[in-house]
Design a protein around this nucleic acid. Structure first.
Length: 476
RNA sequence: GGUGGCAUAGCCAAGUGGUAAGGCCGAGGACUGCAAAUCCUCUAUCCCCAGUUCAAAUCUGGGUGCCACCUCCA
């Protein structure tokens, strides 16, 4: 199966081909580190994480860059309010970013460049653009001359004339064209850096052009970000990079949809947002993650507690099936005739469905459906009348356990298997002991005692389930 | 005004030509000493109108409604 991805640049799904065989280079627009990131931002980090995981699963060697914007108006304003400098502000929220990212089970990127560490490279790029006449100076500022760049608007599918018509009135007459955007902005106060055009700050769009080139090269495969970045951010990034390099820089532009609240975009400016850490304090991280990938990445997701609750219930169903497998796999096989071939074929079928779904523009919603179907087949099989844990069946269950691990945990990043810690060994033994006693009571039909044991274990957070294969338990 | 997108059961959500995956909730049943878990069954003429086709949720045209971008925003 070949992977197909929807490319914003062409407006269609295309077969995915790498620039360099077996390698994929990805650049993701990261956060402006002036605050904790909200659940909508989280989606923009989880989406490339899934893409990266799936590509790695398919055998590609992935290089991933995620940047931190640490200088812009929001940073300066916030730092002023806090009475600290932007460096301190950035440090604080970059630390917070990594805490939340780890909770969300985001794999580490290979590089986390910061804008302020690349000022000199940005200045070099501006010089180059000036030399090539794609930029001009105006009263200490430097602007990009969009009219000079013929392809301007190709990403957002907008005509320059239409954009001009819709452009907000620009009071300053510094620009030749209201759509020209800032490459260098004169600044009399800190933060500011020296440049051939006087002290100032870089324009926002510049950092991504500079840092993607520095860490990924003149051309790379995938660029991700939220749809709101299509225009102007990515449009301008293309203009800068391509004006400078004279060739197409990014092959595939992938944009994720928003998280909405009551049908409206979640955003800091509207004030209708929840920070990721707020959400993580209320729901297990894997539930949050599953919620974020339960819908196709380009569609909007409406955020609600109800949906998070539903997701949690659904996840428990998947986990129950896997716990059952984990339990069975640890039991001794019995002699018998039951053959696992049929179950194995079903598992293979579901895996193929999963892969086909992911190959179709990372259709996680459909892929998750395949996982649920597999769980159902397993439940059906192990709960059937003639079920017996023969060696053949056990082998297939081990394979299915592995499959859930690969697809659910490695690709989707959702922890599905209960992992026993070292200090839980004693707990294990003690609970097993009590369950042995309870089993004896049950055999003697002393149900009152049996129930008492179960109830009191329940009070202690140990849930007991009686199944035809024996009593199972887990910590609730 | 320009541009892009969306409209599928009570809710969430897949599905680009051959009479609708999956999840949540609900009803009934099976299993069970009781629970829990699980399984089975039931619940959709796919926003409206017209057209193309042997055949349309899926293509075309026209409506209606909603969202987003054009200003910082994932």
């Amino acid at each position: 199966m070949t992977l197909r991805v929807y490319n914003t640049l062409t407006g269609s799904k295309e077969e995915f081909e790498t620039i360099e065989e077996g390698k994929v280079k990805i650049y993701s627009c990261g956060p402006t580190v002036y605050d904790y990131f909200h659940i909508g931002n989280a989606r923009a980090f989880v989406v490339p994480d899934i893409i990266k995981r799936y590509l790695e699963y398919k055998g590609y060697q992935v290089t991933h860059v995620l940047n931190f914007t640490d200088v812009d108006d929001k940073m300066i304003k916030r730092a002023d309010e806090e009475g600290i400098n932007i460096q301190q502000l950035a440090d604080r929220f970059i630390t917070a970013f990594f805490e939340d990212a780890q909770a969300l089970n985001l794999k580490k990127a290979d590089f986390y460049p910061q804008a302020t560490e690349h000022i000199s490279e940005m200045i070099e790029l501006i010089k180059d653009l000036l030399t090539k006449d794609y930029a001009y100076q105006s009263e200490g500022d430097v602007y990009f001359r969009i009219e000079k760049f013929d392809d301007y608007g190709k990403l957002s599918k907008q005509k320059v004339e239409d954009l001009e018509a819709g452009a907000r009135v620009d009071v300053s007459n510094k620009k030749e064209n209201p759509l020209d955007f800032t490459l260098w902005k004169r600044a009399s106060e800190e933060p500011r850096w020296d440049s051939p055009w006087g002290a100032g700050r870089p324009g926002w769009h510049l950092e991504c052009s500079v840092m993607s080139r520095k860490y990924l090269g003149d051309r790379f495969d995938i660029h991700t970000g939220g749809v709101d970045l299509v225009f102007p951010h990515h449009e301008n990034e293309i203009a800068q990079s391509e004006a400078c390099c004279g060739q197409q820089v990014v092959n595939y532009w992938l944009h994720n949809g928003y998280i909405n609240i009551d049908g409206e975009k979640m955003s800091k400016s509207l004030g209708n947002f929840f920070t990721t850490r707020e959400i993580l304090s209320k729901y297990p991280a894997k539930v949050v993650r599953l919620f974020l990938i339960a819908k196709h990445y380009r569609s909007p997701i409406n955020f609600s507690d109800q949906e998070l609750e539903n997701t949690a219930t659904g996840l428990a169903r998947l986990e129950n099936a896997i716990e059952k497998i984990n339990y069975l796999v640890e039991q001794e096989a019995v002699a018998g005739q039951l053959d696992g071939t049929e179950l194995k074929e079903l598992a293979t079928e579901k895996k193929e469905k999963f892969m086909a779904a992911m190959d179709d523009d990372f259709n996680t919603a459909l892929a998750i459906g395949a996982l649920y179907e597999l769980a159902k087949e397993v439940n059906r099989f192990v709960n059937s009348e003639d079920f017996e844990l023969t060696q053949s069946v056990k082998e297939v269950l081990v394979e299915i356990e592995q499959l859930f691990k690969e697809l659910g945990e490695d690709v989707l990043g959702i922890e599905l298997t209960a992992e026993a810690g070292k200090d839980e060994q004693l707990v294990d033994s003690l609970v097993e002991l009590l369950l042995d006693v309870r089993e004896e009571a049950r055999e003697k039909q002393e149900y009152q005692l049996a129930d008492q044991i179960r109830d009191r274990l329940s009070e202690l957070g140990v849930e007991v389930k009686d199944t035809p294969q024996g009593s199972q338990w887990k910590l609730s």
